[in-house]
Design a protein around this nucleic acid. Structure first.
Length: 423
RNA sequence: GGAGAGAUGGCCGAGUAGGUCGAAGGCGCUCGCCUGCUAAGCGAGUAUACUGGGAAACCGGUAUCCAGGGUUCGAAUCCCUGUCUCUCCGCCA
């Protein structure tokens, strides 16, 4: 959520920066609603002040017969207050709902642009290798090796669900462990294992709700949502808390499955593991002092990159443009891994800073000093990495001409010493 | 699933025949004093949000004693609903 006071005082600038997300004005009607609310508030609170002082006087008067007229008068006032309160609540709700649908302001360093074509290459690592034979896509490799069973996944549940078997299942688990070990042992994150279902408040806190409910899997009774990313439960760990300055920065990493409806992506990536309704991810989440967030995005992105470097998978880092960043994000780096089977780079991690946008929604604050006013922290997160897509990258990059797949050296200890996956 | 108990400020914990309660007391914390050091002691302060005025320091108003509704001139206190927590029984990994 954006700071309403800031919008009020910097309307033109805010509106202009928001428009870089894609044309439309996100603030139409804000000023009217805001002014209406404050006018009602003043009227209502003035009456309440009157009622409070007169009621106080009534309370102090022992002989109630002396204040009968005041009681009657206050009965009127209370009636009026009730009406105003209702009206005020309505306007408040309207304004609040409105604010929840306004996206974050793009960071000043976020490139302005309208689509992914305007994303900016930041750096690349490793050489996209040319295999000396015709590269297979991972879905063929996986099926031929008997480690990915798409048909049975579909039978058990439906499209975009996959059954992993044998070395495939173990490879997924090995990757999860490698990532968690790296981030906890080398990068200073605390591992957490959060609930995989969350309530509406948590989803609202990080920005998935109210605008993107159709992207989520939902349980009806009780109303819970399956998490689309560990970002949601982990960021909400500190919802409605005031942290100590000395607590910051807080760094968590978490393995969770992620559940996404993928509504609107019919026909896209229908083969293989790229776009699943359920996939595994190791997520990095940081809560930092506002002055640290820009630097923290760089280091967090570096932590995600490190996984690919250890696995020796070529990748590039893209700065997303204003038209391509997510609703809650101020700035995002996508890490894209090279997939020889499809001769393209595919997103394997998305690292974002949210500034105080999520912190304001979820009320996550800290004090600069003991007596200071609470201020909002800045939140960041990034995939470190999407596990299924990492497995895809390994299959495609480490494939041999005979269809077997080498196990990256760093993963071998996690695979019981296995060096080659073959059928 | 059955039975019962509870939810008050950073924490503990008073407060239920409605008014002087934003809320006693204690702990913790901050500042000052005092004190060979430490400890103890003394004094002051110590919630949040919104909002009005002000350049600011600051001053004022409103709301908040789990949440939402109701009764009343007036609710932490009374009534209704919901949520959560705890204990016991049953069931279960």
């Amino acid at each position: 959520m954006l700071d309403m006071k800031y919008i009020r005082e910097n309307f033109e600038e805010t509106d202009r920066r928001l428009r870089t997300r894609g044309g439309e004005s996100y603030l139409a009607g804000f000023c009217e609603l805001d002014e209406k609310r404050r006018a009602l508030l003043i009227e209502c609170e003035t009456l309440k002040a009157l009622r409070n002082s007169v009621s106080d006087e009534i309370g102090r008067t022992k002989d109630k017969s002396l204040v009968q007229d005041k009681i009657l008068e206050m009965r009127e006032v209370s009636h009026k207050i009730k009406g105003l309160d209702e009206e005020l609540n309505q306007v408040d709700d309207q304004l609040h709902s409105f604010m929840l649908t306004v996206p974050n302001l793009p960071h000043i360093t976020t490139p302005v642009g309208t689509s992914e074509n305007d994303n900016v290459l930041v750096r690349s690592w490793g050489e996209p290798q040319k295999l000396p034979f015709e590269a297979k896509a991972h879905w063929d490799l996986g099926e031929d090796l008997g480690i990915l069973d798409f048909e049975r996944g579909a039978k058990i549940t439906g499209a975009r669900f996959t059954l992993y078997r044998g070395a495939g299942a173990r490879l997924e688990r090995a990757l999860i462990n490698l990532m968690l070990d790296l981030h906890t042992d080398q990068h200073g994150y605390q591992e957490v294992l959060p609930p995989f279902m969350v309530n509406r408040d948590s989803m609202t806190g990080t920005g998935q709700l109210p605008k993107f409910e159709e992207d989520l899997f939902k349980l009806v009774d009780p109303e819970f949502f399956l998490i689309p990313t560990a970002e949601v439960p982990v960021t909400n760990i500190h919802r409605n808390e005031i942290l100590k300055k000395s607590d910051l920065p807080i760094s968590y990493c978490a393995y969770t499955p992620c559940f996404r409806r993928e509504a609107g992506s019919y026909g896209k990536d229908t083969r293989g593991l790229i776009r699943q309704h359920q996939f595994n991810k190791v997520e990095l989440v940081k809560f930092v002092h506002p002055s640290e967030s820009d630097a923290a995005l760089e280091t967090l992105t570096g932590h995600a990159e490190k996984v690919l470097q250890l696995l020796e998978l070529p990748y590039r880092v893209m700065a997303l443009c204003s038209g391509d960043i997510g609703f809650s994000a101020a700035k995002t780096y996508d890490i894209e891994v090279w997939l020889p089977g499809q001769s393209c780079y595919r997103e394997i991690s998305s690292c974002s800073t949210f500034g105080d946008f999520q912190a304001r929604r979820a009320s996550i604050r800290f004090r600069e000093d003991e007596k200071g006013k609470p201020e909002f922290v800045h939140t960041l997160n990034g995939s470190g990495l999407a596990v299924g897509r990492t497995l895809v990258a390994i299959l495609e990059n480490y494939q041999q001409e005979d269809g077997s797949v080498l196990v990256p050296t760093v993963l071998q200890p996690y695979m019981g010493g296995l060096e080659l996956v073959k059928s």
